[in-house]
Design a protein around this nucleic acid. Structure first.
Length: 382
DNA sequence: AGGGCAATAT
DNA sequence: CATATTGCCC
Protein backbone atom coordinates (compact mmCIF):
# COMPACT_ATOMS: atom_id res chain seq x y z
CA UNK A 1 0.00 0.00 0.00
CA UNK A 2 2.41 2.51 1.19
CA UNK A 3 4.65 1.44 -1.47
CA UNK A 4 2.20 2.11 -4.17
CA UNK A 5 1.50 5.39 -2.64
CA UNK A 6 5.05 6.42 -2.67
CA UNK A 7 5.28 5.27 -6.18
CA UNK A 8 2.45 7.40 -7.11
CA UNK A 9 3.94 10.26 -5.33
CA UNK A 10 7.07 9.75 -7.16
CA UNK A 11 5.26 9.61 -10.36
CA UNK A 12 3.46 12.75 -9.62
CA UNK A 13 6.61 14.50 -8.92
CA UNK A 14 8.00 13.38 -12.16
CA UNK A 15 4.97 14.55 -13.85
CA UNK A 16 5.25 17.87 -12.32
CA UNK A 17 8.76 18.21 -13.38
CA UNK A 18 7.86 17.27 -16.82
CA UNK A 19 5.17 19.82 -16.86
CA UNK A 20 7.49 22.46 -15.74
CA UNK A 21 9.91 21.49 -18.32
CA UNK A 22 7.29 21.53 -20.94
CA UNK A 23 6.25 24.95 -19.95
CA UNK A 24 9.74 26.16 -20.11
CA UNK A 25 10.15 24.62 -23.46
CA UNK A 26 7.02 26.12 -24.71
CA UNK A 27 8.04 29.48 -23.62
CA UNK A 28 11.24 29.11 -25.43
CA UNK A 29 9.47 27.97 -28.41
CA UNK A 30 7.44 31.06 -28.37
CA UNK A 31 10.57 33.03 -28.29
CA UNK A 32 12.24 31.39 -31.14
CA UNK A 33 9.08 31.31 -33.00
CA UNK A 34 9.94 34.75 -34.08
CA UNK A 35 12.93 33.41 -35.78
CA UNK A 36 11.15 30.69 -37.44
CA UNK A 37 12.76 31.49 -40.66
CA UNK A 38 16.19 31.58 -39.29
CA UNK A 39 15.98 28.76 -36.88
CA UNK A 40 13.49 26.39 -38.27
CA UNK A 41 15.28 23.46 -36.92
CA UNK A 42 15.55 24.83 -33.48
CA UNK A 43 11.89 25.26 -33.48
CA UNK A 44 11.42 21.81 -34.65
CA UNK A 45 13.70 20.47 -32.05
CA UNK A 46 11.95 22.18 -29.25
CA UNK A 47 8.61 21.21 -30.55
CA UNK A 48 9.60 17.65 -30.69
CA UNK A 49 10.94 17.78 -27.23
CA UNK A 50 7.73 19.18 -25.99
CA UNK A 51 5.76 16.54 -27.66
CA UNK A 52 7.94 13.91 -26.30
CA UNK A 53 7.51 15.10 -22.81
CA UNK A 54 3.85 15.39 -23.23
CA UNK A 55 3.76 11.87 -24.34
CA UNK A 56 5.65 10.88 -21.35
CA UNK A 57 3.32 12.40 -18.90
CA UNK A 58 0.18 11.76 -20.76
CA UNK A 59 0.36 8.14 -20.05
CA UNK A 60 2.78 5.41 -20.41
CA UNK A 61 0.94 3.61 -23.07
CA UNK A 62 0.90 5.83 -26.03
CA UNK A 63 3.93 4.51 -27.66
CA UNK A 64 2.97 5.74 -30.98
CA UNK A 65 5.90 7.72 -31.91
CA UNK A 66 5.07 11.08 -33.08
CA UNK A 67 5.20 11.49 -36.73
CA UNK A 68 8.29 9.63 -37.45
CA UNK A 69 7.28 8.71 -40.94
CA UNK A 70 7.65 12.21 -42.09
CA UNK A 71 10.90 12.14 -43.80
CA UNK A 72 12.12 8.89 -42.66
CA UNK A 73 11.87 7.60 -46.08
CA UNK A 74 14.95 8.97 -47.46
CA UNK A 75 13.43 10.78 -50.32
CA UNK A 76 15.22 13.97 -50.60
CA UNK A 77 14.08 15.26 -47.33
CA UNK A 78 16.67 16.71 -45.18
CA UNK A 79 14.43 18.29 -42.75
CA UNK A 80 15.02 15.85 -40.04
CA UNK A 81 18.56 14.77 -40.39
CA UNK A 82 19.90 18.19 -40.45
CA UNK A 83 19.38 18.31 -36.79
CA UNK A 84 22.70 16.82 -36.60
CA UNK A 85 24.25 20.03 -37.55
CA UNK A 86 22.98 21.74 -34.57
CA UNK A 87 23.98 19.31 -32.01
CA UNK A 88 27.46 20.56 -31.56
CA UNK A 89 26.13 23.56 -29.86
CA UNK A 90 26.97 23.09 -26.34
CA UNK A 91 24.68 25.19 -24.40
CA UNK A 92 25.76 24.78 -20.89
CA UNK A 93 29.44 24.77 -21.29
CA UNK A 94 30.53 27.35 -18.86
CA UNK A 95 33.98 27.42 -20.21
CA UNK A 96 33.94 30.59 -22.12
CA UNK A 97 37.55 30.56 -22.82
CA UNK A 98 38.69 27.64 -24.84
CA UNK A 99 36.99 26.99 -28.08
CA UNK A 100 40.16 26.34 -29.87
CA UNK A 101 38.49 25.20 -32.94
CA UNK A 102 35.72 23.04 -33.91
CA UNK A 103 36.48 19.46 -34.28
CA UNK A 104 35.64 18.80 -37.80
CA UNK A 105 37.11 15.43 -37.89
CA UNK A 106 33.82 13.84 -38.43
CA UNK A 107 34.56 13.43 -42.02
CA UNK A 108 33.90 9.82 -42.57
CA UNK A 109 33.00 8.62 -39.22
CA UNK A 110 29.91 9.95 -37.76
CA UNK A 111 27.81 9.16 -34.80
CA UNK A 112 28.79 9.46 -31.28
CA UNK A 113 29.68 12.90 -30.45
CA UNK A 114 27.21 14.88 -28.51
CA UNK A 115 24.47 14.00 -26.19
CA UNK A 116 25.26 16.12 -23.32
CA UNK A 117 22.31 14.77 -21.55
CA UNK A 118 20.36 17.87 -21.95
CA UNK A 119 17.30 15.88 -21.86
CA UNK A 120 16.22 16.42 -25.36
CA UNK A 121 18.73 14.46 -27.14
CA UNK A 122 16.63 11.44 -27.37
CA UNK A 123 14.57 13.18 -29.88
CA UNK A 124 17.03 13.04 -32.62
CA UNK A 125 19.00 10.08 -31.66
CA UNK A 126 17.38 7.97 -34.20
CA UNK A 127 17.18 10.19 -37.14
CA UNK A 128 20.65 11.43 -37.16
CA UNK A 129 23.49 9.60 -38.70
CA UNK A 130 21.38 8.89 -41.63
CA UNK A 131 22.00 11.97 -43.52
CA UNK A 132 25.65 12.07 -43.08
CA UNK A 133 25.80 8.77 -44.69
CA UNK A 134 23.74 9.88 -47.53
CA UNK A 135 25.92 12.80 -47.96
CA UNK A 136 28.93 10.78 -48.30
CA UNK A 137 29.30 10.83 -51.99
CA UNK A 138 32.79 11.39 -53.18
CA UNK A 139 34.15 9.35 -50.42
CA UNK A 140 37.36 7.74 -51.15
CA UNK A 141 37.69 4.01 -50.91
CA UNK A 142 40.70 4.06 -48.73
CA UNK A 143 42.24 7.38 -48.98
CA UNK A 144 44.48 7.73 -51.90
CA UNK A 145 47.24 5.59 -53.15
CA UNK A 146 50.07 7.70 -52.07
CA UNK A 147 50.39 9.71 -48.97
CA UNK A 148 52.45 12.45 -50.28
CA UNK A 149 50.21 14.81 -48.51
CA UNK A 150 51.56 13.66 -45.25
CA UNK A 151 51.70 16.95 -43.65
CA UNK A 152 52.75 17.18 -40.14
CA UNK A 153 49.66 19.15 -39.45
CA UNK A 154 50.61 19.74 -35.92
CA UNK A 155 49.13 23.11 -35.49
CA UNK A 156 45.50 22.65 -35.98
CA UNK A 157 43.75 19.47 -35.63
CA UNK A 158 42.19 19.69 -38.96
CA UNK A 159 42.59 16.21 -39.99
CA UNK A 160 41.29 16.63 -43.37
CA UNK A 161 42.72 14.07 -45.46
CA UNK A 162 43.02 14.48 -49.13
CA UNK A 163 40.28 13.21 -51.18
CA UNK A 164 40.29 12.42 -54.74
CA UNK A 165 38.15 14.63 -56.74
CA UNK A 166 36.89 13.21 -59.91
CA UNK A 167 35.24 15.19 -62.46
CA UNK A 168 33.86 12.80 -64.86
CA UNK A 169 35.37 13.51 -68.11
CA UNK A 170 33.36 14.67 -70.98
CA UNK A 171 33.30 11.16 -72.19
CA UNK A 172 30.59 9.74 -70.11
CA UNK A 173 28.07 12.24 -69.10
CA UNK A 174 25.98 10.15 -66.96
CA UNK A 175 24.83 10.96 -63.53
CA UNK A 176 27.20 13.73 -62.94
CA UNK A 177 27.13 13.91 -59.29
CA UNK A 178 23.77 14.66 -58.06
CA UNK A 179 23.46 11.98 -55.62
CA UNK A 180 19.89 11.55 -54.89
CA UNK A 181 20.75 10.95 -51.35
CA UNK A 182 18.36 8.18 -51.10
CA UNK A 183 20.36 5.42 -52.41
CA UNK A 184 22.88 4.14 -50.06
CA UNK A 185 25.24 3.56 -52.83
CA UNK A 186 28.55 4.71 -51.77
CA UNK A 187 29.86 3.72 -55.02
CA UNK A 188 32.87 5.58 -55.78
CA UNK A 189 32.70 7.27 -58.99
CA UNK A 190 35.60 5.81 -60.70
CA UNK A 191 38.31 8.15 -59.98
CA UNK A 192 39.93 9.28 -63.05
CA UNK A 193 43.23 10.85 -62.78
CA UNK A 194 43.16 10.86 -66.44
CA UNK A 195 40.12 12.89 -66.98
CA UNK A 196 41.01 15.48 -64.46
CA UNK A 197 43.65 16.87 -66.62
CA UNK A 198 42.14 16.35 -69.95
CA UNK A 199 38.84 17.93 -69.34
CA UNK A 200 40.53 21.17 -69.04
CA UNK A 201 40.92 22.33 -72.51
CA UNK A 202 40.33 25.92 -73.03
CA UNK A 203 37.93 26.03 -75.85
CA UNK A 204 39.81 28.82 -77.35
CA UNK A 205 38.21 27.95 -80.56
CA UNK A 206 35.92 30.75 -81.48
CA UNK A 207 36.69 33.03 -78.70
CA UNK A 208 39.31 34.85 -80.66
CA UNK A 209 37.18 35.75 -83.58
CA UNK A 210 34.68 38.13 -82.28
CA UNK A 211 36.21 40.62 -80.00
CA UNK A 212 32.97 41.27 -78.29
CA UNK A 213 30.61 39.04 -76.52
CA UNK A 214 27.76 40.35 -78.50
CA UNK A 215 26.81 37.37 -80.44
CA UNK A 216 26.35 35.05 -77.57
CA UNK A 217 27.72 32.44 -79.82
CA UNK A 218 31.13 32.80 -78.49
CA UNK A 219 31.84 30.03 -76.06
CA UNK A 220 30.53 26.96 -77.44
CA UNK A 221 33.23 24.44 -77.47
CA UNK A 222 32.28 22.32 -74.59
CA UNK A 223 32.10 23.48 -71.14
CA UNK A 224 33.78 21.88 -68.34
CA UNK A 225 31.73 19.46 -66.45
CA UNK A 226 29.89 21.25 -63.81
CA UNK A 227 31.45 20.89 -60.54
CA UNK A 228 29.15 19.54 -57.99
CA UNK A 229 29.78 20.85 -54.58
CA UNK A 230 28.82 18.03 -52.42
CA UNK A 231 28.45 18.35 -48.75
CA UNK A 232 31.76 16.85 -48.30
CA UNK A 233 33.40 19.27 -50.58
CA UNK A 234 31.64 22.11 -49.04
CA UNK A 235 32.67 20.94 -45.67
CA UNK A 236 36.22 21.15 -46.62
CA UNK A 237 35.65 24.43 -48.14
CA UNK A 238 34.24 25.76 -44.93
CA UNK A 239 36.98 24.27 -42.99
CA UNK A 240 39.55 25.96 -45.04
CA UNK A 241 37.64 29.13 -44.84
CA UNK A 242 37.58 28.99 -41.16
CA UNK A 243 41.23 28.41 -40.86
CA UNK A 244 42.01 31.22 -43.12
CA UNK A 245 39.98 33.59 -41.15
CA UNK A 246 36.80 34.03 -43.00
CA UNK A 247 35.39 34.36 -46.43
CA UNK A 248 36.73 37.77 -46.91
CA UNK A 249 40.30 37.17 -46.20
CA UNK A 250 40.67 33.77 -47.60
CA UNK A 251 41.89 33.54 -51.08
CA UNK A 252 40.92 30.87 -53.49
CA UNK A 253 44.32 29.47 -53.75
CA UNK A 254 44.81 29.07 -50.09
CA UNK A 255 41.46 27.53 -49.77
CA UNK A 256 42.16 25.10 -52.46
CA UNK A 257 45.32 24.08 -50.83
CA UNK A 258 43.76 23.59 -47.51
CA UNK A 259 41.03 21.58 -48.96
CA UNK A 260 43.46 19.21 -50.46
CA UNK A 261 41.03 18.03 -52.94
CA UNK A 262 42.52 16.56 -55.95
CA UNK A 263 41.26 17.86 -59.18
CA UNK A 264 39.69 20.88 -57.73
CA UNK A 265 40.71 23.88 -59.65
CA UNK A 266 41.39 27.30 -58.51
CA UNK A 267 38.62 28.70 -60.49
CA UNK A 268 36.15 26.41 -59.01
CA UNK A 269 37.09 27.43 -55.58
CA UNK A 270 37.03 30.98 -56.58
CA UNK A 271 33.63 30.66 -57.96
CA UNK A 272 32.36 28.91 -54.98
CA UNK A 273 33.85 31.46 -52.74
CA UNK A 274 32.22 34.15 -54.69
CA UNK A 275 28.92 32.55 -54.40
CA UNK A 276 29.48 32.03 -50.78
CA UNK A 277 30.25 35.61 -50.22
CA UNK A 278 27.28 36.69 -52.12
CA UNK A 279 25.02 34.58 -50.11
CA UNK A 280 26.41 35.45 -46.81
CA UNK A 281 26.50 39.10 -46.99
CA UNK A 282 22.95 40.09 -46.55
CA UNK A 283 21.70 38.17 -43.68
CA UNK A 284 20.51 40.73 -41.26
CA UNK A 285 17.03 41.29 -42.27
CA UNK A 286 14.48 40.17 -39.85
CA UNK A 287 16.49 39.58 -36.81
CA UNK A 288 16.19 42.81 -35.05
CA UNK A 289 16.14 41.97 -31.43
CA UNK A 290 18.86 39.51 -31.36
CA UNK A 291 21.42 42.06 -30.78
CA UNK A 292 21.54 42.92 -27.22
CA UNK A 293 18.62 41.30 -25.67
CA UNK A 294 19.92 37.85 -25.77
CA UNK A 295 22.85 36.84 -23.80
CA UNK A 296 24.76 35.10 -26.42
CA UNK A 297 24.79 35.39 -30.09
CA UNK A 298 25.50 32.70 -32.46
CA UNK A 299 26.69 33.19 -35.87
CA UNK A 300 26.72 30.65 -38.50
CA UNK A 301 29.95 30.20 -40.12
CA UNK A 302 28.81 28.38 -43.06
CA UNK A 303 26.78 25.75 -41.50
CA UNK A 304 28.65 25.67 -38.33
CA UNK A 305 27.24 27.57 -35.52
CA UNK A 306 29.70 29.19 -33.36
CA UNK A 307 29.50 31.59 -30.53
CA UNK A 308 30.03 35.01 -31.72
CA UNK A 309 33.16 35.79 -29.86
CA UNK A 310 34.87 32.62 -30.57
CA UNK A 311 37.07 33.71 -33.31
CA UNK A 312 40.17 34.61 -31.60
CA UNK A 313 42.29 33.16 -34.23
CA UNK A 314 40.63 34.93 -36.97
CA UNK A 315 43.10 37.60 -37.57
CA UNK A 316 41.91 41.06 -37.89
CA UNK A 317 39.36 40.96 -40.51
CA UNK A 318 38.47 44.35 -41.54
CA UNK A 319 35.12 44.52 -40.04
CA UNK A 320 33.65 46.70 -42.61
CA UNK A 321 32.24 43.67 -44.20
CA UNK A 322 29.14 44.95 -45.73
CA UNK A 323 27.64 47.89 -44.12
CA UNK A 324 25.34 45.51 -42.43
CA UNK A 325 28.36 43.89 -41.03
CA UNK A 326 26.64 43.14 -37.89
CA UNK A 327 28.47 40.38 -36.31
CA UNK A 328 31.82 41.94 -36.23
CA UNK A 329 34.77 39.92 -37.28
CA UNK A 330 33.21 37.58 -39.61
CA UNK A 331 29.64 37.13 -40.17
CA UNK A 332 27.96 34.79 -42.39
CA UNK A 333 24.70 34.01 -40.76
CA UNK A 334 23.12 32.55 -43.68
CA UNK A 335 23.66 29.12 -44.93
CA UNK A 336 22.46 26.85 -42.31
CA UNK A 337 23.21 24.03 -44.54
CA UNK A 338 23.42 23.60 -48.21
CA UNK A 339 21.22 21.13 -49.77
CA UNK A 340 22.99 18.72 -51.87
CA UNK A 341 22.58 20.52 -55.02
CA UNK A 342 20.23 23.37 -55.05
CA UNK A 343 20.21 26.76 -53.57
CA UNK A 344 22.19 27.89 -50.65
CA UNK A 345 19.79 26.44 -48.25
CA UNK A 346 17.95 29.56 -47.79
CA UNK A 347 15.92 27.71 -45.37
CA UNK A 348 14.46 24.40 -44.91
CA UNK A 349 10.93 25.22 -44.40
CA UNK A 350 9.30 22.92 -42.08
CA UNK A 351 6.07 22.91 -40.29
CA UNK A 352 3.74 20.46 -38.90
CA UNK A 353 3.14 19.70 -42.45
CA UNK A 354 6.33 17.91 -42.94
CA UNK A 355 7.81 17.10 -46.13
CA UNK A 356 4.89 15.00 -46.87
CA UNK A 357 4.90 15.95 -50.42
CA UNK A 358 6.77 18.06 -52.84
CA UNK A 359 10.12 16.58 -52.55
CA UNK A 360 11.98 19.77 -52.86
CA UNK A 361 11.43 22.74 -50.80
CA UNK A 362 12.56 25.71 -52.58
CA UNK A 363 11.82 29.04 -51.21
CA UNK A 364 12.51 31.90 -53.38
CA UNK A 365 13.80 34.54 -51.14
CA UNK A 366 12.68 37.97 -52.02
CA UNK A 367 15.44 39.51 -50.07
CA UNK A 368 18.45 39.03 -52.12
CA UNK A 369 17.79 39.69 -55.62
CA UNK A 370 20.62 40.31 -57.83
CA UNK A 371 20.30 43.92 -58.36
CA UNK A 372 20.58 44.33 -61.99
CA UNK A 373 23.98 45.34 -62.76
CA UNK A 374 23.73 48.45 -64.67
CA UNK A 375 27.24 49.32 -64.80
CA UNK A 376 28.23 51.88 -67.22
CA UNK A 377 31.38 50.61 -68.54
CA UNK A 378 32.93 48.21 -70.84
CA UNK A 379 32.61 49.33 -74.28
CA UNK A 380 33.00 45.80 -75.25
CA UNK A 381 29.68 45.90 -76.86
CA UNK A 382 30.33 48.73 -79.13
C1' DA B 1 46.26 36.03 -58.58
C1' DG B 2 41.91 37.45 -57.39
C1' DG B 3 37.53 39.94 -58.11
C1' DG B 4 33.69 40.33 -60.80
C1' DC B 5 30.35 39.69 -64.04
C1' DA B 6 28.22 37.87 -68.40
C1' DA B 7 26.99 33.54 -70.47
C1' DT B 8 25.20 29.17 -69.85
C1' DA B 9 23.80 24.85 -68.22
C1' DT B 10 20.53 22.58 -65.00
C1' DC C 1 12.37 31.02 -64.39
C1' DA C 2 16.00 30.93 -60.80
C1' DT C 3 20.40 29.29 -59.56
C1' DA C 4 24.76 27.31 -59.87
C1' DT C 5 28.97 27.21 -62.53
C1' DT C 6 32.03 28.33 -65.99
C1' DG C 7 34.52 31.48 -69.01
C1' DC C 8 36.97 35.56 -69.39
C1' DC C 9 38.26 40.16 -68.71
C1' DC C 10 40.22 43.46 -65.73
Amino acid sequence: MIKSLSNMKNYNEKREKCCEYIEALEEERRKINVFQRELPLCLELVTQAIEAYKKEISGTTTDTLYGQPECSEQTTGECGPVLDLFLPIKQSSASTDEEEEEEEVDEDDDVEHESHDTGIDFVDKNMKSEWLKSVQLWNQPEAVPVSKWERSQQETQTLVEPIKENDNGAGSHQPPCYETSNEKNDYIISLATTSSGSARQKTEAERGGSGGSGGSSSRRGQRKQRRCWSHELHRRFLNALKQLGGPHVATPKQIRELMKVDGLTNDEVKSHLQKYRLHTRRPSQTVPNNRDSQTQHFVVVGGIWVPQASHSKANAVASRETTTGIYGPMASPLPSEWPSHSSFGREISEERSRCSNKGIVRCSSPAMSSSTRTKTKDAKMS
